[in-house]
Amino acid sequence: MRYSASTTAGATGATGSLRAFARVYRYFLLIILLDTVILILRPLTGKEVFRHTYSNFIEMLSICPPIFLLLGLLDVWVPRETIIRYLGEDSGVLGAGLSILLGAAAAGPLYGAFPIAAVMMKKGAKFSNILIFIGAWSTLKVPMFLFEASALGARFAVTRWIVSLTGIVFMTLIIDRIVTKEEKAAIYHRHGEGCQT
C-alpha cells in the first residue's frame, strides 16, 4: 500500500492518515525521538534541547500566517498569462522591470521557476527577461524578503535585496552577451516555439 502524503490521507481513514502523517514527518519524528532519548539519558541537556526547539517553533510559526496569506492572495490575483505578453522582444526596460516583479511575487524553490520560464520562452518572452526572471525568483522573492527581514533584521535584508537586484542585472547582461544567437535558438527550440533572441 502506498500513501502519497495528504491527498489519500482523508480517504483511507484514521490509520491511513496517521501513516501518511508519519511518512511525511518521518525526519521530524526521528529527531524528536532522538531528543527524547537524550532527555531520558541526560535530563538536563534534554530539557535544554526541547526548550530550544520549542522557542524556534514559536518564533517562526508566529510569522507564518500573514506570509502564507499574502502568498495565496498574490497567486490568485496576479494572472500569469496576461503578463507574459508584456515580456517579449520589444518590451525593453519595462519588460525587464516586469520580469523582476514577476519573479519577486513568486513563491517556492528556484527549480519551481524553470517550468514557468519554459512557458514564457514558448510564448515568446525575451531571453534576457527570462534570465532576470530566474534571478529575481531565486533571491528577490517578497515573501522570503519579509521572512528574512524578520529573522535577520531589516538592514541585512534590505541591503541584500538591493545588492542582489544590481547583481542580477549585471549577471544577465554578461550571460546574454556570452551566449550566442545560435545557442539561444537551440534553447528556445527545446521549448517548442521559434527563435526569440
Partner: peptide, 28 residues
C-alpha cells in the same frame, strides 16, 4: 487564495519542522 496559502504552508511544514528540530538539537 486561502486554500493555496494553506496548501503552500502544509507543503513546507514537514521540512520546516525538521530543520527547526535539527537547529534546536544541534545548537544545544
Amino acid at each position: 487564495a486561502l486554500v493555496k496559502g494553506l496548501r503552500a504552508f502544509s507543503n513546507i511544514l514537514p521540512d520546516f519542522a525538521t530543520v527547526l528540530a535539527i537547529v534546536g538539537l544541534v545548537l544545544t
